[in-house]
């Protein structure tokens, strides 16, 4: 067994152990902390699977932004843990559930191991058209060209989620500042970080979007970093979240899919097909779409994390 293999096995065991901890931990807070660590470990697994784009997304969104959301929720829900624990199903039911889940996992493992290797793939087809698109990262080509319809709809999913989250405000608070009322200003250290980090974060985010055409990175990863910067600034209370009635906020939310749709509809006219790029124009159009998608993701994710407005508009 080589060193790399030993490390892989160690990593897999660690991921499983932390996942088990997340499920089994007695306190919900410990469970959430376990989940954040789990997400980071999982990004390492993604790197080992030659999926650096996914690793970046998992670290930024799956672990990072989700972690912020879950930690703030678990603190507010602390009182509900004891009553819920009383509803825990009995040993027999849990044993039955465990048996069922073991069977499913074992069957799944068997099925996956039995799959042909090398398996079915679209890699050659995906690689064939990179030249005409002018991008070097095949994942970007899949997301913004071959399956751009999925990506556009997925951004619509995010917008519906924002509307869903906002719809949980009370009637009187509609239009007000997004997110819960916050207590006293936090300690200086956080404010210091929130002043220092964003300029750096913005540079890193733009870099990641820009190189995303040819290397790992892209709108989702870059947008998530921008969102993280916004969240740090909001947590340090350097500035208030925007009021949800603001037109500019709503424009930022829909900019990504809107530009996608405009380019898509223009495609009807010039190359003759919805969402198709005219020859020679693919690269600039892809960058245009990526830029607006980044903006929209950077606006959407913090709105989903901080939740509905908790005070009336001014």
């Amino acid at each position: 067994m080589s060193v790399i293999q030993a490390l892989d096995i160690g990593l897999a065991l660690l991921v499983l152990a932390v996942a088990g901890w997340t499920i089994a931990a007695r306190e919900a807070f410990a469970s959430v902390v376990g989940y954040v660590a789990y997400g980071l470990l999982l990004s390492l697994v993604w790197v080992r699977l030659f999926a650096v784009d996914v690793a970046l997304t998992e670290a930024a969104i799956g672990s990072g932004v989700t972690g912020v959301l879950l930690i703030s929720a678990v603190v507010r829900l602390r009182k509900t843990e004891a009553p819920a624990a009383a509803e825990r199903p009995g040993v027999v039911l849990r044993a039955l559930a465990a048996a069922l889940c073991t069977v499913v996992a074992a069957a799944l493992a068997a099925v996956v191991l039995l799959m042909p290797d090398p398996g079915a793939t679209l890699a050659p087809e995906a690689g064939q058209h990179l030249g005409e698109l002018g991008v070097g990262n095949p994942i970007t080509a899949v997301l913004i060209a071959y399956r751009s319809f999925d990506t556009m709809l997925e951004k619509v999913v995010l917008i519906l989620a924002v509307i869903g989250v906002w719809s949980l405000a009370s009637d009187g608070n509609w239009g007000g500042v997004a997110g819960p009322r916050r207590g006293a200003r936090p300690e200086g250290a956080l404010a210091f970080l929130a002043q220092l980090l964003p300029p750096l974060g913005i540079v890193v985010a733009i870099h990641i979007v820009w190189v995303g055409a040819n290397e790992p990175g892209g709108a989702f990863q870059g947008g998530a970093i921008l969102a993280a910067m916004a969240l740090i600034v909001l947590m340090a209370r350097l500035t208030e979240a925007p009021e949800i009635r603001r037109r500019w906020l709503r424009l930022a939310l829909i900019a990504g899919p809107a530009v996608f749709l405009v380019v898509g509809i223009a495609g009807f006219a010039i190359p003759g097909s919805f969402l198709a790029y005219p020859a020679g124009w693919a690269k600039p159009l892809i960058l245009l779409i990526e830029a607006f998608m980044t903006l929209s993701i950077a606006a959407t994710l913090p709105m989903l994390v901080i939740g509905p407005p908790d005070r009336p508009p001014s």
């Binding site: 030659f50 996914v54 969104i61 090398p118 398996g119 793939t121 679209l122 050659p124 994942i139």
Partner: peptide, 23 residues
């Protein structure tokens, strides 16, 4: 990963689906 072919270490299509799925 099993779909590695044509000089790519992995099939980009399922990887892109995962990115959509995570979001």
């Amino acid at each position: 990963r099993k779909g590695a072919a044509a000089g790519f270490a992995a099939d980009p299509v399922p990887q892109a689906m995962v990115i959509t799925g995570i979001v």
